[in-house]
Computed example of a mutant assay.
Amino acid sequence: MDSIIFDLDGTLWNPIDTVLSAWNSILKEHPIVQRELASEDFSQTMGLQIQEIGRLLFPSLADEEREQLLKECCALENEHLGNNGGELYDDIEIVLKALSEKYKLFIVSNCQDGYIEAFYKYHGLDPYIIDYENPGRTGLSKGENIQLIMERNDLCSPVYVGDTDGDREAAKFAGIPFVFARYGFGNAAAYDHEIRKFSDLLELF
């Protein structure tokens, strides 16, 4: 094993409270939606791409209306996250620092462009991460973005760490082992390894 590729939401942090604040601020300006989002709404969308999230949360909107709403929500979300951050899971920096001394570390998340940068801006963890990718920049699936990171950085034997079955499928698509973060938002039908807290990675690797 030469590297570890991380999912972000549900694996490194929980951003829901900050994201909710941003999205509900935008929804108040769009009476056509007539709803306020709760944390449960976002919990069921973790791991999905933004278009899928939009269809799930706002199924009654026309495509053009939904696209404009999502654009506004994501822009304010990035701003709020950059200024306020999210809830990091326990010992994240300690573990990332230790792992970075042995392995190359990366992030691949199903988020919009600017989201990972906001994570870096507030929490300052980018010195431990060599490269990152997301569909907001590439338009690719998570599995394809994992492959892109592997090719771009000449990785031979990475593992992927995530918290949903979509993460498992992405790792399988890329042909690499999957480490299931059970403390996160989702479930996984199968996995190669399991962690119950982030620091378990130090024992696993």
Rank of each mutant, 00 (worst) to 15 (best):
C73S: 02
I176C: 09
A75H: 12
V108C: 13
Q49C: 05
L27Y: 00
E133L: 13
V19G: 00
S109I: 02
E144G: 09
P59F: 03
T11G: 11
W23F: 15
I195Y: 07
R35K: 14
I92S: 05
T164L: 09
L140Q: 11
F119S: 02
F180E: 01
L76G: 05
D7F: 12
Y103R: 04
N24T: 04
I53F: 04
G184S: 10
V33W: 01
L81F: 10
D163L: 10
E65N: 01
L76D: 00
Y128M: 03
T45F: 05
L57F: 09
G175P: 11
D91I: 09
N134M: 13
I50Q: 10
E77A: 00
L48F: 05
E144I: 05
D41Y: 06
L204V: 09
P15R: 06
G184T: 06
F205R: 08
A188C: 08
L37E: 02
I195P: 08
L69S: 06
M150C: 15
F58L: 06
N145W: 05
L8V: 05
C156Q: 15
D2V: 04
T18A: 05
N24A: 08
S199M: 02
F180M: 09
N145Y: 07
D131K: 12
D2N: 14
D9T: 01
D2E: 03
E117M: 03
L69E: 00
E64L: 13
R137C: 05
I26F: 00
D17G: 00
L81M: 12
E93C: 01
L96P: 01
K142G: 03
V179S: 02
D91G: 00
I116H: 02
P15S: 07
P59R: 07
L48P: 07
L70D: 03
I129T: 00
W13Y: 12
I5Q: 03
E36W: 08
L96G: 01
Y128D: 04
L20Q: 05
G162D: 01
L48N: 03
Y89V: 13
R137N: 05
L61V: 00
Q147M: 15
E203K: 13
